[in-house]
Computed example of a mutant assay.
Amino acid sequence: MTRLFRSLRKTLTLTLTNQIPIQQQSLCISSPSSHIIPSRTYISQMHKEAFEGNISRLLRNEIQYELQSSSSSNPPADKFGSFLVDGRPGERWITLKRQFANENIKVEVTMFDGAVPAPKKSGGVANADEVQLHITLIVNISKEDGDVLEIMCSAWPDSIVIKRLLVRANKNMTAEPYAGPDFEELDDELQDSLYNFLEVRGINDELAKYLHQYMKHKDKTEIIGWMEKVKSYIEKK
């Protein structure tokens, strides 16, 4: 996106000049006694059309670039283990659902919402530009009595990290329940047990890897869709 708008700013002035025919450019500098000077409204309309045409061209180039760069990547499967995946096109979230014994499990997953510097490589230092992308998961596990166990997690490229958990006694309750202490403050054995609790339900490091692959593809798809909508709006008469 940065490259798109840098290009727009750099080429706009030249485009505006080139878009005006030579004869009309001369009207602006010739003697008023020998030529009719175009009205300000007419010139403004020409500038507007040149500006919009340039945006449309730049968006078209960006869309083509994104399509070519993603042509070799296959879309991820809409199923992972026992989870069915709803990609929710046009949104920043996806949803995974499954049954486990008498539990309904729903996992709400953001697109990439953060990053940290990549860890140092063994025997050297990671490139300063290398980062690890971060995804947020909200795991909701409900039973027949209506209570919901909500577990907030982070998904790094190869691991799930629990951040906090709470029990919602009623899905429709308006007040936010007490969320308990930070997960890292709990007893180590209790932490391990809760990780095993999620592992049994298919929420594990393999899921983290799948989600990062899925979100990379979704991010590319959403960017292309966004640019196509903007281009369509700009070109609308």
Rank of each mutant, 00 (worst) to 15 (best):
D113I: 13
D113W: 07
G114N: 07
G114R: 08
A115W: 08
A115N: 05
A115E: 12
A115L: 07
V116S: 12
P117A: 06
P117G: 05
A118V: 04
A118I: 07
A118T: 02
P119I: 05
P119A: 05
P119C: 04
P119F: 02
K120I: 03
K120N: 11
K120R: 07
S122K: 10
G123V: 12
G123D: 08
G124R: 14
V125Y: 11
V125K: 15
V125C: 09
A126D: 04
A126L: 07
A126S: 15
A128M: 14
D129R: 12
E130P: 00
E130W: 06
V131Q: 09
V131E: 10
Q132M: 13
Q132I: 13
L133N: 07
H134F: 13
H134S: 15
H134V: 15
I135L: 15
L137V: 06
L137K: 05
I138G: 01
V139Y: 01
N140S: 13
N140K: 11
I141L: 08
I141H: 01
I141V: 10
S142W: 01
S142N: 00
K143P: 00
K143T: 08
E144K: 11
D145P: 01
D145M: 06
D145C: 05
D145S: 05
G146R: 05
G146D: 03
D147M: 13
V148F: 01
V148T: 07
L149E: 05
L149H: 02
E150R: 14
M152V: 10
M152C: 11
C153H: 06
S154K: 10
A155R: 04
A155P: 03
A155N: 03
A155C: 08
W156R: 11
W156I: 10
P157A: 06
P157K: 07
D158F: 04
D158Q: 06
S159C: 09
S159A: 14
S159M: 12
V161K: 11
V161P: 00
I162M: 11
I162A: 06
I162H: 01
K163P: 01
K163I: 04
K163G: 08
L165N: 06
L166K: 08
L166A: 12
V167L: 11
V167A: 07
V167R: 14
R168P: 00
R168T: 02
R168E: 04
A169H: 12
A169F: 09
A169K: 15
A169G: 14
A169T: 10
N170R: 09
K171H: 02
K171W: 00
N172P: 00
M173F: 05
M173L: 12
